[in-house]
Design a binder for these strands. Structure first.
Lengths: 126, 126
DNA sequence: CATAGTGTAATAGATGTATAGTACACTAGT
DNA sequence: ACTAGTGTACTATACATCTATTACACTATG
């Protein structure tokens, strides 16, 4: 997996797992791949996986069962909040930066819509 | 100034100065505040300022004059590219993350437009 | 109870980031 | 010349992040 060199890997893994849950690749109650397996898949050290999982456990998104593994919570309230904060976080980052560039709300939406347009036409997924 | 604890301060300062240039607070040819002054204003160490400026100089956005100070380039081509990549970078980050959440292009633009709406109503600029 | 699969803990070392402090070099004004 | 204002360079220290490695604890299976 590719990581942004400017942000901690453990944090990017947290968000990656959150996305896997939101998409449905990891369903509520499902077992998360073993830490040693994740370490291989994501090409990072087990400790880094562990740190990411510890944060997700702390947040109640994953539930650990000793000797068995880590499982996605079935608490829909927690999952709903997580999804909300994930998406809002993305929007807020863009909004704040565009606001710092003194774009009006109309300009923001128009500019982003135009960008999405360009991505649709020239999809050159490498 | 407030910094995101998850990304290097020097990088956030680079982007801050880029924004100041785009907005027009720093015009082409204008002198950037002295490094020691910036260190006080942004409440960081001089070395951190220095590292950010070094990157901007490397990129041709700032032009150093020994003993005088650092100045914003008057090369419109360089400034244009910088502005373009700044805004595109913001869009790309959001687009990629929303795409990872398997939102369609229409859903993306609609969701962002809706978010901007919510920001307009409840503007509690502190 | 032995074993393989899980998570968990602890240590040591490398690297990146940020701070603190000192020193040097160039420019301009007096 | 002196001085004050610039950038620049270097060392030392502290902390966060990541890796490598080893060890331990719990669960399930045979």
């Amino acid at each position: 997996m590719e990581f942004d060199a400017k942000t901690p890997i453990y944090y990017q893994i947290e968000q990656y797992i959150n996305r896997e849950i939101i998409i449905g690749h990891l369903r509520p109650g499902a077992q998360v791949p073993a830490v040693r397996q994740l370490a291989i898949t994501l090409t990072v050290n087990v400790n880094t996986i562990q740190r990411a999982l510890a944060n997700l456990i702390q947040a109640g998104i994953l539930v650990p069962e000793r000797g068995k593994g880590n499982f996605v919570t079935t608490d829909q309230k927690v999952l709903g909040k997580m999804k909300q904060s994930m998406i809002e976080g993305e929007f807020k980052a863009l909004y704040d930066h565009l606001a710092a560039l003194e774009l009006s709300p109309e300009e923001m939406t128009a500019a982003f819509a135009q960008y999405v347009q360009t991505q649709q036409g020239g999809e050159a997924h490498e």
